[in-house]
């Protein structure tokens, strides 16, 4: 019973997200609207953590598997990419590392700086 309720709540929020995605003319997917709705609902107490927790954590746990079908789709785009394959691979990999460096270090520097100020 508990898991049925939890699953239904998560699916219902996904549905609301899907509807918002269709109504609002922005390129924001259903899942992001849904994530925002669930977060706000949890913060305001409209939905209790215990009403979504186990099923939600299970979905997150098996999430890596959900990327397999999309990634296997590489066999279809492979030929279209031949022309600038090197560029795609180099740019994808290099910029990923650069983004991690920028986002991570800036966050870390501000947190440390703030920590020092609080100690004073």
């Amino acid at each position: 019973m508990k898991y049925i309720i939890q699953f239904e709540i998560i699916i219902a929020i996904s549905l609301i997200g899907e509807l918002l995605n269709r109504i609002i003319p922005l390129p924001i997917p259903a899942s992001i609207y849904g994530m925002a709705i669930l977060y706000i609902a949890l913060c305001t107490g409209a939905i209790k953590l215990s009403s979504v927790k186990e099923t939600g954590k299970f979905l997150i746990y098996i999430m890596p598997m959900m990327f397999i079908p999309a990634a296997v789709g590489l066999i279809e785009t492979w030929e279209a990419m031949q022309e600038f394959l090197t560029a795609i691979i180099v740019i994808s990999l290099a910029s990923t590392v650069l983004v991690m460096a920028a986002a991570g270090h800036i966050t870390q520097i501000i947190i440390k700086h703030k920590g020092k100020e609080e100690k004073r």
Partner: peptide, 17 residues
């Protein structure tokens, strides 16, 4: 399998909360 990606992403609100 891909179909579950939307509800799983919605569930990411839980650890965030």
């Amino acid at each position: 399998l891909s179909y579950l990606l939307t509800p799983a992403t919605v569930a990411l609100a839980i650890p965030l909360y």
